[in-house]
Simulated scan of single mutants.
Amino acid sequence: MSEGQGIDHRSNDRDSQGAPQVIPFPSPATTPQVAFQRDELRTIFNLYGRRVAEGEWRDYALDFRRDKAVFSIYRRNSEMPLYRIEKDPKLARRQGAYAVIAASGLVMKRGNDLARVIGVLDKPLQAV
């Protein structure tokens, strides 16, 4: 090699401007969140709206986790939830994906049909 030829000091892990390249570290695959579908929310909000109109329920909260989705129903926003409507897809083939859970932790009803499961929260019709 003669003196007129330069030596390229750039290594293969640098970009065209001499800055080091960042090699992304493979991140773990993220599992999607469990959420209520539009028709499920419509069914829940129909019941919720009726009970709000009756003055029994006042607030709600939605919580979407990786393992389940939770719709919590409150009498007042400062209290613990009266009921929780949970969607847990892992239980779909066993006990049912949907469950209504009381404030005490008692599972009131569980099943695969949301309308039938939340029917336990709907008041029966009374003769006037």
Rank of each mutant, 00 (worst) to 15 (best):
S2M: 08
G4M: 10
I7Y: 07
D8C: 05
R10H: 04
S11T: 13
N12C: 04
N12V: 14
D13Y: 10
D13V: 09
R14N: 02
S16D: 10
G18Y: 13
G18Q: 11
A19F: 11
Q21H: 02
Q21T: 12
P24V: 04
P24F: 03
P24S: 03
P26D: 11
P26Y: 04
S27F: 02
S27P: 00
A29C: 00
A35V: 15
F36R: 03
R38W: 01
L41T: 05
R42L: 14
T43N: 04
N46W: 02
L47W: 11
R51G: 00
A53Q: 07
E56H: 11
E56D: 09
R58K: 14
D59A: 15
Y60F: 15
A61K: 13
A61I: 00
L62K: 11
F64S: 09
R65H: 05
R66Q: 11
D67V: 06
F71G: 08
N77S: 15
N77L: 07
E79Q: 13
E79V: 06
P81E: 04
P81L: 09
L82V: 07
R84P: 01
I85N: 02
E86N: 03
K87W: 03
D88A: 13
P89W: 03
K90M: 05
K90Q: 08
A92F: 00
Q95W: 00
G96C: 07
A103N: 12
L106C: 02
D113I: 15
L114G: 09
A115D: 09
A115P: 00
R116G: 08
V117H: 03
G119I: 10
L121E: 02
D122T: 14
D122K: 14
K123C: 01
P124G: 04
A127M: 11
V128A: 15
